[in-house]
Amino acid sequence: MDAADVDEAVYDCVERIPPGRVSTYGAIGRLVGVGPRRVARALSAGGGAVPWYRVLRADGTCAEPVRVRQLELLAAEGVPVRGGRVDLEAVGWP
């Protein structure tokens, strides 16, 4: 799979995350067949058209460069955040 195909696979997967739910870079990577850093690279390079903010670190925290905006967008969808962390067991996908 070339880089463009990986990016498209990541975007397709992220688009399937329902509103009010979240996933992790690692979970998306497992679905696509790449590592979590590759998922992050795809989203940072061109994921603006998909709900990138629904993808979190494995511990339920946001990436620092987008933390404030990501938390705002998640709150708007009713995702519970406590202490800067999302409860992945409660709202994790898939």
Rank of each mutant, 00 (worst) to 15 (best):
E8S: 12
V10A: 01
Y11G: 01
Y11P: 01
Y11T: 01
V14C: 05
E15P: 00
R16W: 03
I17T: 04
P18R: 06
G20W: 04
G20N: 00
R21C: 15
R21V: 05
S23Y: 03
S23G: 14
Y25K: 05
Y25F: 15
A27L: 10
I28Q: 06
G29D: 12
V32K: 11
G35S: 03
G35V: 07
G35T: 04
P36W: 12
R37D: 15
V39H: 05
V39M: 09
A42S: 15
L43K: 02
S44K: 11
A45I: 01
G47W: 07
G48H: 09
G48D: 15
G48T: 04
A49D: 11
V50A: 14
V50T: 13
P51K: 14
P51N: 13
P51G: 10
Y53F: 15
R54A: 04
V55H: 03
L56Q: 00
A58S: 14
G60K: 04
T61I: 04
T61F: 03
C62L: 13
A63Q: 07
E64S: 14
E64Q: 15
E64W: 07
E64P: 09
P65L: 08
P65R: 10
P65N: 08
R67K: 12
V68A: 12
L71D: 03
L74Y: 06
V79H: 08
V79C: 03
V81W: 07
R82Y: 05
G83Q: 09
R85T: 09
V86N: 04
L88F: 13
